[in-house]
Amino acid sequence: METGHYHEWATLFKVLARVHSVLEHIIPPTDTAELTAYDATKAANLPLWKRLDAVVLQWIYATVSHDILTSILVADDVAEKAWNRVAQLFQDNKHSRAAYLETEFTTTKMADFGSVMAYYNRLKSLTDQLANVGSPVSDQRLVLRLLAGLRSRMHTLSPPSNRKMFCLLSQVCSGLEARRCGDQGTCPRFQSRGSPCSM
């Protein structure tokens, strides 16, 4: 895991920890009753707890990049502290990462990609990463950036290719509208017109 992919790594790691019932080794309970029960379980079989903690610690070490590993490696460590050090590394780089991602988002153009879908996927990935560093991109801004990047390409493409771009934009709008409304429908603005996507 590189620092640019911290949220993806942390999300997948938490899923793994839940599957094996060891999430408390990296994120202890905050509820008083749950914390008391966790401490009692830990005290009842400390050798087992230490072995499980070592397994989780090994997972952390095995799934981060070498640079991150050398930054967080401490003798006689526990999983929770290693987990927190990885998170702190990400927090320390948050502002510079946001500036870098913002530059990438505003300068990404369709000409750099082999297909409209690859271009859209790159923009979507950048918006997700920006949200993860506390700089969310609105749906409107995503669509405007998509259109701005497509503008120069639209003039050079044949009508069937323009239709494909329109269809992609329609799908993007539909997905954003569905996410905003919590509905599985399509974007009514595009659906109301004769759709070239079925041609």
Rank of each mutant, 00 (worst) to 15 (best):
V116W: 00
E34D: 10
L144A: 14
W49G: 00
S138H: 05
D53T: 01
E2T: 14
F13C: 11
D128M: 15
A37C: 02
G4S: 13
D39N: 10
T63C: 05
S71A: 15
D183N: 08
L176D: 06
T11N: 06
S170M: 03
R18N: 12
K42R: 14
L35H: 05
E104I: 10
Q88Y: 08
L69H: 15
Q58E: 07
P196L: 11
V56E: 05
N121I: 06
A75I: 12
W83M: 13
S170F: 02
M199W: 14
P196T: 10
V19A: 08
T41Q: 13
A54V: 12
T3L: 15
I68N: 07
W9G: 09
D183E: 10
F13Y: 12
L69N: 12
V133G: 08
A111M: 11
C187M: 05
A33C: 02
S161C: 09
H95K: 14
V116F: 02
V172E: 10
V137K: 08
L126V: 09
K42P: 00
C167V: 05
Y119M: 07
V56H: 06
P136S: 04
E177V: 11
E80V: 12
V56N: 06
D77T: 08
L46M: 04
F113G: 05
A17D: 02
A131F: 04
D183G: 02
L12K: 07
G149E: 09
S192E: 07
A98V: 04
F166C: 09
D139W: 01
R145D: 12
R193W: 05
E80H: 11
C197L: 03
S198T: 13
L52G: 05
R163K: 15
S115H: 00
L123R: 10
P196H: 08
A99W: 04
E104F: 12
L46W: 00
K164V: 07
G134Q: 04
D76H: 15
V172C: 11
A111I: 11
W49A: 00
R151I: 04
A33W: 01
R180L: 11
T30Q: 13
E177R: 12
C167Y: 04
K94M: 01
G149H: 04
K94A: 00
W49K: 00
L176P: 03
A10C: 07
Y6V: 00
S21D: 10
F166M: 11
Y6A: 01
F105G: 00
C181N: 14
A98P: 02
A75K: 15
L73Q: 13
G182R: 04
V22K: 01
N121L: 13
L23P: 01
L69R: 15
M1E: 00
R189V: 09
A98E: 03
F105Q: 00
T3P: 09
F90E: 07
L101A: 01
D139P: 00
K94Q: 01
C181E: 15
L169M: 10
Q171M: 09
A178S: 14
P29F: 03
E2K: 14
L130A: 11
Q129P: 08
L142T: 07
L169K: 03
D77Q: 09
I27A: 11
H155G: 03
R141P: 01
E102N: 13
C187L: 06
V133I: 10
V86H: 08
A62P: 06
L157P: 08
L69S: 13
T32V: 09
V137L: 09
F190G: 14
E24R: 04
N132C: 06
